[in-house]
Design a binder for these strands. Sequence first.
DNA 1: GATTGCCTAGGCAATACTGCCCATGCCGGC
DNA 2: GCCGGCATGGGCAGTATTGCCTAGGCAATC
Lengths: 206, 206
Amino acid sequence: MSGPGLAPPVFVVDDDPDIRSSLTRALRMRGFAAEAFASAQAFLDGYDGRAACVVLDFGMPGMNGLELQALINREGFPLAVIFITGHGGVPESVQAMKGGAVDFLEKPFRQSVLVERIGAAWEVASARAVAEGRSRDVAARFERLTAREREIVDWIVAHPGTVSSKEVGRSLGISPRTVDHHRARILEKLEIRSVAELVDLARVLD
Amino acid sequence: MSGPGLAPPVFVVDDDPDIRSSLTRALRMRGFAAEAFASAQAFLDGYDGRAACVVLDFGMPGMNGLELQALINREGFPLAVIFITGHGGVPESVQAMKGGAVDFLEKPFRQSVLVERIGAAWEVASARAVAEGRSRDVAARFERLTAREREIVDWIVAHPGTVSSKEVGRSLGISPRTVDHHRARILEKLEIRSVAELVDLARVLD
DNA sequence: GATTGCCTAGGCAATACTGCCCATGCCGGC
DNA sequence: GCCGGCATGGGCAGTATTGCCTAGGCAATC
């Protein structure tokens, strides 16, 4: 239960140097592995793909907080975003929350509040990382399937009530025996042991 | 593509009579089936379980908007909530969005904006209603299972890679033949035709 | 006390799946 | 042209599933 990795990483992205230094100091004191970046671009250059919480200034020169959030969502990074803002109002906060932000705080805020929210955000980020990892893993296994195999998978997933080789074969216009053959390859490549698990696995992919 | 039910229902819940009358008038003019309520309690008394969009005053006497939202979430009503507020700020909007609100507008707002947001909210409510209906339907079918049958379902869902009667029987300490028997009843009661579909169906239930 | 529902489990036959073998034909790369 | 991967299928043996029958034990209900 000790060693590196215990301290949840928190990335502070803000163009204000005072905020950066005071937040990182406060967070490190409370056991977080805090790192600061002066801009969205600097953060992106330094980000290594880890699960983490990102404390993001809403209004920054260059790429702003919302844009960075949109990028994080597009890329599927396992990051939980908490916005902090000096001049934002209700419309900005609503937009941020719609974009999947975990929280949104107005400056000035009490550091104890931020720390508490980061704790919650870290839970979200961890869960997201697990889901992401699982999803990537499953997707990688599906990559190994050939076109025909994928076609059979698609058909079975779309018709989980009719999974016999006979039905699938008739539907695809091939012999049941060939479906048997493909199915064996599919189970092998996906590292599963039953059609039930196949349907289960396929549901992981969105 | 015509007849009753085409107009998306919108419930306006606000203690201000002016808001109620102006909003319902504006919404009806734009093709919504708008109804107004002066309080959360009045809305709850009149609500019939339909999928709808609810425009909710954040700060109301009696049960306030947040409390009503929490109740809606608890009950799983197929409603999409849009808050409107006179005096709320960023913390209130964040809290509302965390609670699953689809939108949050400050008074005064342009009616065209509200109408547009209601359109989006209606999509959400419809999708939620479909999911809710499906979920209730599936749950009702699961209700018909006996204790032993449910135990077998649980085991299969937990171990989708090992679904043979032999394995299940060994694990539960009963004969494979008995598992066969239960399984046939399970498929019959759930109105499905394969174990794959069983796993699929079970995943619908959260 | 009879009935009903549930859990148990066996028999039997038809059907299906699985894992091994085999083969053919096609295509793309070396 | 040869080789490897892919899709197609057949054979065969062992195993599993499925549907239909029977039937005993047990608990609750009428």
